[in-house]
């Protein structure tokens, strides 16, 4: 994927030079190895700052809707699905955005790589499927396939759904016999074990809301957790309040989540926030045959009525 950055820079420079877009939203190298941060560039010279590699785990669709004028955006498969969702939900108009599609081969799980080292990681480079990670004491050569994030492992939409131009060739999509093995595992537990699973999951949550802020779906001007009148949920570390936040946020994402993994990427406490949303993604697929962000003309299932909607829960 490293090679496509040249093409991304070329395309961005051309767009900015011709004045077709005011800004290009992409990734820049972060201040530490294995970190990238979103950047909005406005001049041709700054295109050198753009990077694209296997550590670009955040979702840029989050920044697309908050811009004025026409913007170009670098979009992986999941980013493009969130852009589709933004267009469907009227957060942005199609003609306001120029999508530079990047077929994606997955992002790496940074915390999994970090566990291999006792000391701090000082260098990270990649070449195709090979990752070279160094710390002050040693160097590890890793296979990228073994260190993919879980959501990338189960990803069936690596290629952008909607794009104006592609930065590299389309990649082959995988077909999964069981797309939700993680949800199946939790479903197999009994009621109390399920409860315990989620209690353990959230016990380290510090309510920093990084998951919400990283999520492209969470664009409400005032989030329900910040509302003071009425105060829907307490603001402290009470575990019922913490769980209420997570469950309600997940439900707000029902039928809209693209499993981009930005919430997990942003979490400083290493909580697998996707455990909440994955169940709803599974239900959306099984009950409504729906995957979010695939069709610019269709509203999400919980936002639309169809006589075929399942109603066997009403007695």
């Amino acid at each position: 994927m490293d090679t496509c950055i040249k093409k991304i820079r070329e395309l961005s420079a051309e767009l900015l030079e011709k004045g077709e877009v005011q800004k290009v939203i992409g990734f820049a190298q972060g201040t530490i190895p294995m970190a990238t941060s979103p950047i909005a560039i406005e001049s041709k010279q700054d295109t050198e700052k753009l990077v694209f590699n296997s550590t670009c785990g955040l979702n840029l669709a989050n920044y697309a809707s908050k811009q004025k004028g026409k913007v170009a955006i670098i979009a992986k498969g999941c980013d493009s699905r969130n852009i589709v969702t933004h267009i469907v939900e009227n957060q942005i108009q199609r003609d306001q955005i120029y999508i530079i599609g990047v077929p994606c081969t997955g992002m790496v799980d940074k915390s999994k790589i970090a566990t291999l080292f006792e000391d701090e990681i000082t260098g990270f480079t990649e070449d195709g499927n090979t990752l070279r990670v160094t710390s002050s004491s040693r160097e590890e050569i890793l296979k990228k396939q073994d260190y993919l994030r879980e959501n990338c492992l189960y990803c069936t939409h690596k290629n952008p759904i909607l794009y104006d131009v592609l930065a590299t060739e389309l990649v082959e999509e995988q077909m999964l016999e069981k797309p939700f093995p993680d949800v199946d595992r939790i479903e197999a537990l009994d009621t109390d074990a399920k409860w315990q699973h989620f209690e353990n999951l959230t016990k380290n949550c510090i309510r920093c809301y990084a998951c919400r802020n990283a999520c492209p779906l969470c664009y409400c001007p005032t989030c329900f957790v910040d509302e003071a009148g009425p105060q829907w949920v307490g603001k402290g570390q009470n575990k019922t309040d913490v769980n209420t936040f997570h469950y309600l946020r997940a439900f707000h994402c029902a039928g809209r989540c693209t499993d981009c993994g930005a919430c997990v990427e942003a979490c400083p406490m290493g909580i697998n926030v996707r455990d909440f949303t994955r169940k709803l993604n599974k239900d959306a697929l099984e009950l409504f045959g729906w995957e979010a962000g695939l069709d610019i003309t269709k509203r999400p299932p919980l936002d639309a009525y169809s006589p075929e909607d399942p109603d066997d829960f009403i007695k």
């Binding site: 939790i186 409860w195 469950y247 439900f251 029902a254």
Partner: peptide
Amino acid sequence: NLLEHMGI
């Protein structure tokens, strides 16, 4: 379904 999944 979500409530059941979370253990209610």
